[in-house]
Computed example of a mutant assay.
Amino acid sequence: MLLFARLLVLVSLFSGAAFAYDPPAEDSRLVLDRQGVRIWSYQVPNSPLYGFKAVSTVKSSLSGLVALIADTENARKWIYRTKSVEPLERNDADLSFSVRVITDFPWPFRDREAVVSGHIVQDPQTLKVRIDSNSINTQPPRACCVRMPMVEGSWIFRPIGNGMVEITMTGHADPGGYIPASAVNLLIQEYPYNTLKGLRKLIGDDRYQKSHFPNIHEPTATHGP
């Protein structure tokens, strides 16, 4: 199976992607610590919209996590408020891709759409997998939705030993249209919490844990975090 036999779907606040900015610890505020999920919010420079950082741990191979995120057909089963993910382009040579994500927004707001490009890398020493993404405007907007003007993001999968992986999901996005920043900031906890809960419910499935990607290397018994 090629690493991009199915395109990776990235997740962030309101759109299915996560922000690549790593906030300094002193600028972050812990806003939730429940059922194995911790979430911090932080002020993003030059933006009225907060970013978030969410962390959890799961028992999984690295390929298993990549396989779950690559399964675009089942993305809406676990990515909170995601209606659909449409693969657009891929490049197996440099492990890059683009997808269109439609997100279900609560009434009275219209649904949101984001076209996102991304890239996956693995650190050869730590074996940490990082998937970064950002919004692009290579596709015309759909009439059903408001195009999100900005989405940037990352997932980080860090092996910590004994088959466990620490997942870090960070996010910041501009949903576009007229939505008060205060309303957007209220969802800082809701989106990552429900998404990570959904991931943890599905990650043990054999279809993910039996997956193998040649470009993703797993830690050995003697390999430390």
Results as ranks from 00 to 15, higher is better:
Arg6His: 15
Asn74Val: 06
Met169Arg: 13
Ala181Asp: 09
Asn215Cys: 13
Ser117Cys: 12
Val151Glu: 01
Arg158Ile: 12
Gln189Met: 11
Pro23Asn: 06
Val101Glu: 09
Ala183Leu: 15
Gly153Val: 00
Ile136Lys: 07
Thr126Ala: 11
Pro219Met: 06
Leu13Gly: 14
Gly153Trp: 06
Trp155Gly: 07
Gly177Ile: 04
Leu88Ser: 00
Phe213Tyr: 09
Trp107Pro: 12
Phe109Arg: 04
Ser135Lys: 01
Asn91Arg: 05
Arg29Tyr: 11
Leu88Gln: 05
Thr222His: 13
Arg38Ile: 09
Ser98Gly: 08
Asn137Trp: 02
Val66Gln: 10
Gly176Tyr: 02
Phe109Gly: 05
Ile156Phe: 11
Tyr208Ala: 05
Gly51Ser: 01
Arg147Ile: 00
Val44Pro: 08
Ile131His: 03
Phe105Ile: 05
Arg130Lys: 13
Thr220Gln: 08
Glu152Asp: 14
Val99Gly: 05
Lys59Ser: 13
Glu113Val: 01
Gly36Asp: 00
His119Gln: 09
Asp94Val: 05
Tyr80Trp: 11
Trp78Pro: 03
Leu95Ser: 09
Ser12Gln: 12
Glu152Val: 14
Met150His: 14
Arg147Pro: 05
Ala93Arg: 12
Gln209Trp: 04
Thr103Gly: 08
Arg34Glu: 14
Pro219Glu: 07
Gly176Val: 00
Gly204Val: 06
Tyr178Glu: 13
Leu186Pro: 07
Ala181Asn: 07
Phe19Glu: 14
Ala221Asn: 13
Pro219Gly: 06
Gln189Arg: 15
Phe14Cys: 03
Gly176Arg: 05
Thr170Gly: 07
Arg110Ile: 04
Thr103Gln: 12
Arg142Ile: 03
Leu62Phe: 09
Val85Ile: 07
Phe157Leu: 07
Thr138Asp: 08
Ala20Ser: 11
Ala181Gly: 04
Asp174Gln: 09
Phe19Val: 14
Gln122Arg: 02
Ile136Pro: 06
Pro219Ser: 01
Ala183Phe: 13
Asp33Ala: 04
Tyr191Cys: 08
Thr220Val: 08
Ile131Pro: 00
Arg207Gln: 11
Val121Gln: 13
Asp33Arg: 01
Asn137Tyr: 01
Leu187Thr: 13
Leu49Ile: 06
Leu187Val: 11
Val66Asp: 10
Val184Asp: 11
Lys210Gln: 13
Ser98Met: 03
Gly36Met: 02
Lys210Ile: 06
Phe97Trp: 10
Glu218Ala: 08
Ile136Glu: 01
Leu2Pro: 15
Asn162Asp: 14
Tyr80Met: 02
Arg158Glu: 15
Trp78Tyr: 09
Leu62Lys: 08
Val116His: 05
Ile179Lys: 01
Ile167Gly: 05
Tyr50Phe: 15
Pro175Asp: 00
Met148Ile: 03
Ala114Cys: 08
Ala25Ile: 09
Ile131Trp: 00
Pro225Phe: 12
Val115His: 07
Arg6Asn: 15
Asn134Asp: 12
Asp111Leu: 00
Asp22Gly: 02
Tyr193Gly: 02
Arg112Met: 03
Val146Thr: 07
Ser133Val: 02
Gly161Pro: 09
His217Val: 14
Gln35Ser: 14
Val44His: 10
Tyr21Gln: 12
Ser211Phe: 10
Pro87Ser: 04
Asp205Lys: 14
Gln35His: 15
Pro45Ile: 05
Pro219Ala: 02
Thr222Trp: 10
Thr126His: 03
Pro23Leu: 08
Met169Glu: 10
Ser56Thr: 14
Phe157Arg: 07
